[in-house]
């Protein structure tokens, strides 16, 4: 069983500042979600509410159809792994892994297997780990939690590219083996885009967009072809790249049929829009001001 997520009119204030305002959000069970937003947009605040790390100022946070706050049967099956993990730095890696057994579903054998795979030194104190290894330990405890709702908040920070790749693959393998709800909050958008089924974008404490990945990719297009031909289309580009006589541009609007025909006739290839380019466009403050 994996958990659904429902937020109804949820707000969170830090003093006089709105971290989240009037959020309504429904996430189906058993999917991998990407949570995107600029720095300070409210991603971590949103995840903190889902894991009952914080209590909302207003509104209802339901996980698995039940209020998550102080609900032991629910929170024991929800895992939010924050950057660097929430560990006692004086503990050894082994002690941190064993402490995971507070969760009834924690898989210690799997955690130790992952620790070996990622070269985690079991006897070393957490405070003596490098930033990357600490991130790996956090990721290992999150995967081995075998939770019904697992959330990783920038957990990849400090990991090198091969380790991140191995982590994503392990996450996917665990998800395929045991379908559950996963939320990945990250700034490395293109790196995780292939794993995501739906994307939620928050901006300035509000829900900006929530759609499946295909819908996002259909919001625009990438056109690649001879530079002159691309320029001749006269499209407003979000981003562009040029290599010799070839040019690639990203546009934020779905292309109409005549434009597609002109592009095809000019030898221009049309592909889906990159999620990162679209995200940059959607959260551009100047765009909203206009």
């Amino acid at each position: 069983m994996s958990f659904t997520v429902n937020l109804r009119g949820v707000s969170l204030r830090y003093g006089s500042e709105d971290a989240l305002a009037d959020i309504d959000l429904d996430l189906e069970a058993g999917k991998i979600y990407g949570l995107l937003g600029r720095n300070g947009a409210g991603k971590t605040s949103l995840l903190s509410l889902l894991a009952a790390f914080r209590k909302p100022t207003a509104g209802d946070v339901l996980v698995g159809g039940e209020p998550v706050w102080e609900n032991a049967p629910i929170v024991s099956r929800v895992a939010l792994i924050r950057e660097g993990g929430d560990f006692d730095d004086s503990d050894s890696v082994k002690a941190v892994i064993e402490a995971g057994q507070i969760r009834p579903s924690f898989d210690t054998e799997y955690a130790l297997k992952l620790a070996e795979r990622f070269d985690l030194p079991l006897k070393k104190k957490v405070r003596d780990l490098s930033r990357g290894k600490r991130s790996v330990l956090a990721a290992v405890t999150g995967l081995a939690a075998r939770a019904e709702l697992t959330m990783f908040d920038e957990v990849h920070l400090g990991m090198d590219a091969p380790t991140r790749d191995a982590f994503y693959k392990e996450l996917l393998a665990e998800y395929m083996d045991r379908p559950h709800t996963v939320i990945l909050s990250t700034h490395l958008i293109d790196e995780v885009a292939n794993y995501l089924e739906e994307v939620v974008i928050v901006d300035r404490g509000r829900l900006l967009r929530h759609a499946d990945i295909e819908a996002f990719q259909g919001m625009g297009a990438t056109l690649t072809g001879p530079a002159d031909a691309v320029d001749a289309l006269g499209l407003a580009a979000l981003a562009e790249q040029r290599l010799g006589g070839t040019k690639s541009i990203t546009v934020a609007d779905a292309l109409d049929a005549p434009t597609r025909e002109r592009a095809a006739a000019a030898g221009i290839e049309i592909g889906p829009v990159g999620l990162q380019d679209l995200f940059i466009h959607l959260t551009d403050p100047e765009r909203k001001a206009a």
Binding site: F53, A72, V75, R103, A145, A147
Partner: peptide
């Protein structure tokens, strides 16, 4: 002081 973040992050309720 140490257990509050560790235990809550490990899925314990405050009451527990």
């Amino acid at each position: 002081f140490v257990l509050v973040p560790n235990m809550i992050a490990t899925g314990l309720t405050r009451r527990e």
